[in-house]
Design a protein around this nucleic acid. Structure first.
Ligand code: SF4
Ligand code: SF4
Lengths: 164, 164
DNA sequence: AATAAGATGCATCAGCAATGCACCTTATGG
DNA sequence: CCATAAGGTGCATTGCTGATGCATCTTATT
């Protein structure tokens, strides 16, 4: 019962971008702030881009930023999108693959687990990225990430220029 | 986001034992019925025994059966007991281990995931093994497992003697 | 004794998440 | 236009750990 690091990295990235507001961030910058593998993060970011969560821009002065306001990015959607394998048990995936349980089609456990998973996701769907950013501990996060205070664009979403 | 096969095997075993009622079953028997590794099941059963879910008996004529009535075995408890690693993300386990996230102590995601996990387990805690056995598809399960009908003790919970 | 069960520990396998590397593509700037 | 700084893409490698197999011991029945 574990989420992949991949998913957590995706969420960390979104948090970082949310704190940074309008300004773009490069993959390297984010990887260094979090002390995580840059190579791995490349794939995470790319996927987030294809999923419409972040907007990437190549070339000099490029980088990434949130594609939508933080308040419109539901945590549940991110998890659903980045976590590849949401099959709690073997029978969740289409039959014929990986063994196949003898009880399939006649097992109540199956639906119970499905129900539990739905409850899990429901909690995550109730919150957006903005909720994660609004934490009172925000300043502490900023410090840990090496971002200065007052530069997040969160309390001043209408930053004049987005020039990097 | 996956439960281990270990956990699923444990639940399958309990379902099997529940259907079998008072009669003991051997590990081999259960493994064959479910077409799963006997060696692996040995460990599962052993752990279930240490956890007080099943009652094992060695030697000839030995085997295992439920240690408590099915209605008193909560699904959530079984999952909690058999699933070793319930740390959804790295930060769930005590600090100092496996990297350590830069956001720890200041991350809202952490508590949100904890909340979601609690919701997940709450669903499982609401049901007992008896609920899994009472499914209308019971006959189908019995057939698939090679157990004859009318021998489960489920519809006749007040079996006169518990003699094996 | 012989046999049929579970108990226990160790070795091995296999899948896949995680990581690294090489190279390509796109954009900016001078 | 070329140099450079970004992201895009594919493939190779590593490492963890769940899953499996095997050998041996212990316990109980007949
Ligand atoms: S026992 Fe039930 S939940 Fe588990 S794999 Fe079989 S059908 Fe699915
Ligand atoms: S980002 Fe938050 S949830 Fe993820 S590991 Fe760090 S502290 Fe935990």
């Amino acid at each position: 019962m574990r989420l992949t690091l991949y998913t957590d990295y995706a969420l960390r990235t979104l948090i970082y971008l949310g704190l940074k507001g309008d300004r773009r961030a490069s993959i390297r910058e984010i990887a260094e702030a979090h002390r995580i593998s840059e190579n791995h993060l490349v794939k995470v970011v790319h996927r987030l881009g294809r999923g419409g969560f972040v907007e990437t821009m190549r070339g000099r002065g490029g980088g990434l930023r949130l594609a939508r306001p933080a308040a419109e990015i539901r945590v549940g959607d991110v998890v659903r999108f980045t976590e590849e394998d949401m099959a709690l048990v073997a029978c969740f995936q289409p039959p014929g693959e990986s063994g196949g349980c003898a009880l399939i089609d006649a097992c109540r456990l199956q639906s119970l687990l499905g129900e539990a998973l739905a409850a899990f996701m429901a909690v995550l769907d109730r919150r957006t990225l903005a909720d994660l950013l609004a934490a009172p501990e925000r300043e502490a996060v900023l410090a840990r990430l090496g971002l200065g205070p007052g530069t997040t664009g969160v309390e001043a979403p209408r930053a004049p220029g987005n020039g990097e």
